[in-house]
Design a binder for these strands. Structure first.
Length: 639
RNA sequence: CGCGGGGUAGAGCAGUUUGGUAGCUCGUCGGGCUCAUAACCCGGAGGUCGAGGGUUCAAGUCCCUCCCCCGCAACCA
């Protein structure tokens, strides 16, 4: 759109108020600000170097943002758009923070079993309030939490339900099915008020009297970051946010749909003066070599590392990512595919065509564009196809079908290759030199069209090609024309647009990832701190025995649960254990295990579980049995 | 247990609304051509369209049941 000369701004930024950031900072002994500074700069820099043309890439720790977010909150506050709720909440004095329900365990008031969570007792299935628990304990520090009064503000999403329903379900039927479906599901479930503040010390302070120690909840402040960033960009920001003829598009991943389609629009319409997003073409997820991408596990292709390993190949990654974008379902990025797409598509189709044309032009005409002579029917057909390809590409871009758009654009290079192959100028040059001039003239125009058409996808390559053919700055709208380069126009010496990527380079990347895997497995991720001391008497209450698994089967309709029959020496009992993701039932029959035999029985999925198999969890979350090193008799005590 | 999206050739995808020869971009095998970093042309192999059942003259497409992957939901943003 921007190339078409429309008024477009692209806004982005780092959301820097997430809770994990504070945890990471604590772990590394630095401030949260240090953490976000580091990452913000890496990310920002990477975007720039890949030619992603954000007009501004901002951050939610900027001053403007603090102001904007505060003002936004205040506006809603004074207009009575919030519900204020005061509640008693458990507070962990050791950890110095309020506790979410599931960070509290205790004894269930109904069935008196231990280990009920603040929101639900898994034994009797009753849903609870944290305050109902007898003997509550903080999961974080193990200490006894105390009640403290805390006040929070809630955005009553339910009050916006009707307008959202109409806005999305009726006015935006064109949204992608994944987005539309997700929204419908939420709306049909009924919306609940959502707290917009939190008791934390990292974030935008709640700008109301008596709100010390409270910050805006991340999801509330983060989308406002879009507004802040626009403000930082231009004093004229309101025309983008407050005029009806401006279309706002959110480009996000599927995990963020609800925030951008429900919550943020609700905020905006509560405020009243802002426009709502026009479309939210959310993508699914991209995996890497079969596994979920994870920056914390270093399972990723870091852009700054990519740039070192593949200098000058920004466009190759852009191409591959666009061509395999997870627009309709999760997708997998593999280095083999990356290599294949580079070598077979960029090099062989696009690069090769340009090379053929420029080399022949140099050879026959010393780089001058020859005259267009008489046209054959085939010439005319070809020339008619070109504007059609351009038009289709444009249409696909406008409807966010980037993958298809790129394929369509590549069809122009395919068309060019076919045109050359069919007309065979290298043969005709010996017999009909006049005809060859026309052929080459047309081929050069196709090349010039490519130089413009590819710009949105491959900006670096497009510029390189524009230089090669001495094309000055061109309007996108000229694309499709057959008169971009006039007769006699001189083009430069041909150079290659793309290089082949060799197997060795791909293998290097693969072994890098393999190394990450082994590193992760080996890393003794910082061990959790020891829990509070227990008395010897308490310890003595625990009865752990060596047992032997005699039967094992999967519990139907669950992912994790196995139903085991264990010989404890004392008896044979049924134990339900959450290990099915790591062990096949058949494989563990006969296995010696450690079992806690005097744990209060508990009903799980309708099966009474009598005891607990002891497992060790490694850094990857995989489970390992705690078994005696030698084969000993079931019932032997573990002390 | 609930909700949303997905499951189509070795890879990536379209086709499902409105049933009618299973297609596209690559890869692969054989042949042709050769200006070029081997494009283009011709021909071939490769699919139980996640599984099972049903409706129909006819099902990838409609109906039912189930399985698998990914998300959402239990105040995780």
């Amino acid at each position: 759109l921007r190339l078409k000369g429309e008024d477009v701004i692209m806004i982005g930024g780092s959301d820097e108020h997430g809770v994990p950031i504070t945890l990471k900072a604590k772990r590394e002994g630095i401030t949260p600000q240090d953490v976000v500074d580091k990452y913000h700069n890496i990310i920002k820099d990477s975007f720039e170097r890949f030619g992603i043309s954000f007009d501004i890439y901002s951050r939610t720790t900027s001053e403007t943002h603090y102001e904007t977010a505060s003002d936004f909150f205040k506006t809603l506050y004074v207009n009575g758009k919030f519900i204020e709720k005061e509640s008693e909440q458990y507070y962990d004095e050791v950890a110095g923070q309020f506790l979410a329900d599931r960070y509290i365990t205790g004894t269930c008031p109904h069935c008196h079993s231990e280990g009920a969570y603040g929101d639900q007792c898994e034994k009797c299935g009753t849903s609870l309030n944290a305050t109902d628990l007898v003997n509550p304990k903080s999961v974080i520090s193990g200490s006894q939490p105390v009640m403290r009064n805390t006040k929070h503000w809630y955005l009553p999403l339910d009050q916006h339900e009707e307008s959202l329903r109409k806005w999305i379900l009726e006015d935006h039927k064109e949204w992608k099915s994944n987005v539309y479906g997700q929204c419908k599901s939420w709306l049909d479930m009924g919306l609940q008020p959502r707290a917009v503040s939190r008791d934390l010390d990292w974030g935008v302070p709640v700008p109301v009297k008596g709100a010390d120690g409270k910050v805006l909840y991340v999801w509330f402040d983060a989308p406002i970051g879009y507004i802040s960033a626009t403000k930082e960009l231009t004093p004229d920001w309101e025309k983008y946010w407050k005029s009806d003829d401006c279309r706002m598009i959110h480009f996000i991943g599927k995990d963020n749909i609800v925030f951008h389609c429900i919550v943020f629009p609700a905020m905006l319409s509560a405020e009243g003066s802002y426009i709502l997003p026009d479309n939210v073409p959310a993508n699914e997820f991209l995996n890497l070599e079969g596994d979920k991408i994870s920056t914390s596990r270093n399972w990723a292709v870091w852009l700054h590392e990519y740039l070192e390993d593949f200098k000058g190949k920004e466009d190759v990654l852009r191409y591959v990512l666009t061509a395999t974008a997870p627009e309709t379902k999760d997708n997998d990025f593999t280095w083999r595919d990356f290599q294949a797409r580079n070598n077979n598509e960029l090099v062989a189709v696009f690069g090769n065509f340009v090379n053929r044309v420029t080399v022949l032009t140099q050879k026959y005409y010393n780089g001058a564009v020859p005259a267009l002579g008489e046209l054959t029917d085939f010439d005319r057909e070809t020339m008619l196809d070109i504007p059609q390809i351009v038009e289709r590409t444009e249409e696909l871009l406008n409807t966010f079908h980037f993958r298809d758009a790129l394929r369509e654009a590549m069809n122009l290079a395919r068309l060019g290759n076919k045109y050359l192959a069919d007309t065979e100028p290298w043969k005709l040059i010996k017999s009909d030199a006049e005809r060859v001039k026309t052929i080459m003239h047309i081929s050069i125009q196709i090349t010039a069209n490519l130089a413009i058409l590819m710009e949105p996808f491959l900006p670096f390559t497009a510029r390189k090609l524009q230089n090669m053919i001495n094309l000055g700055k061109q309007d996108w709208n000229i694309c499709g024309s057959m008169e971009i380069l006039a007769e006699g126009h001189i083009i430069n010496e041909p150079t290659l647009l793309f290089d082949k990527i060799e197997d060795t380079e791909i293998e290097a990347q693969l072994s890098k990832l393999a190394k990450t895997k082994t590193d992760n497995a080996a890393s003794t991720a910082v061990a959790n701190p020891a829990k509070e001391n227990v008395s010897f008497d308490d310890f003595g209450k625990i009865d752990i025995r060596v047992g032997k698994i005699i039967e094992a089967e999967k519990v139907p309709k669950t992912k994790k649960l196995l139903k085991l029959k264990v010989d404890t020496g004392i008896d044979q009992r049924t134990v339900v254990s959450g290990i099915a993701e790591y062990f096949e039932p058949e494989a563990i029959i006969g296995r010696q295990v450690s079992i806690l035999v005097n744990l209060a029985p508990r009903e799980i999925k309708g099966i009474v579980s009598q005891g607990m198999i002891l497992m060790a969890e490694d850094a990857n979350g995989a489970l390992h049995f705690i078994s005696p090193a030698d084969n000993i008799k079931p019932g032997s005590e573990v002390r």
